[in-house]
């Protein structure tokens, strides 16, 4: 029973973690995680979703330009991001939940700047926890 409750709580937390403003992220497949390696092509710091375009160097179908969606600039600011967190040409590895229909789009999970090792996350649950902590 305790285990069941714990699992339910984890599921709820993870749902809130990927939830974004304005549209559901259900078009991304939460059961699949793809790591895209490449360079930042564009970093759009705009509402309602910050977008990241990547030149992915993977071979085969996964190569080419990918579009990755994040939460809003306001929410990302609260997680320590800024419009200067990334710049065109940065070498990155980005974990995404890919679009279910196979197009080169994904819902953001985590980014690693390969030259520095810095990891950037964007989980709404973290903002919620910070806010619940107050102050």
């Amino acid at each position: 029973m305790i285990r069941k409750t714990l699992i339910a709580a984890l599921v709820a937390l993870s749902a809130a973690g990927v939830a974004q403003a304005h549209h559901s992220f259900a078009m991304f497949d939460p059961a699949k995680v793809v790591t895209l390696q490449g360079r930042v092509k564009e970093y759009r710091w705009v509402n309602p979703h910050v977008a990241l375009l990547l030149d992915v160097t993977a071979p085969g179908n996964a190569g080419g330009v990918w579009a990755v969606e994040l939460t809003s600039p306001g929410n990302l600011t609260r997680l320590g991001w800024s419009r200067k967190s990334l710049k065109v040409g940065d070498r990155v590895a980005v974990e995404v939940n890919p679009l279910r229909d196979g197009q080169h789009g994904g819902g953001f999970r985590k980014l690693t700047l390969l030259d520095t090792g810095q990891v950037l996350q964007a989980r709404l649950i973290d903002i919620e926890k910070n806010a619940a902590g107050g102050h």
Partner: peptide
């Protein structure tokens, strides 16, 4: 709703169609 007073929580402009 939870209150936060950090400046990173200040409301920022958002224009829905900008995206």
């Amino acid at each position: 709703y939870y209150r936060n007073r950090k400046r990173s929580y200040d409301i920022v402009e958002g224009v829905c169609r900008q995206g």
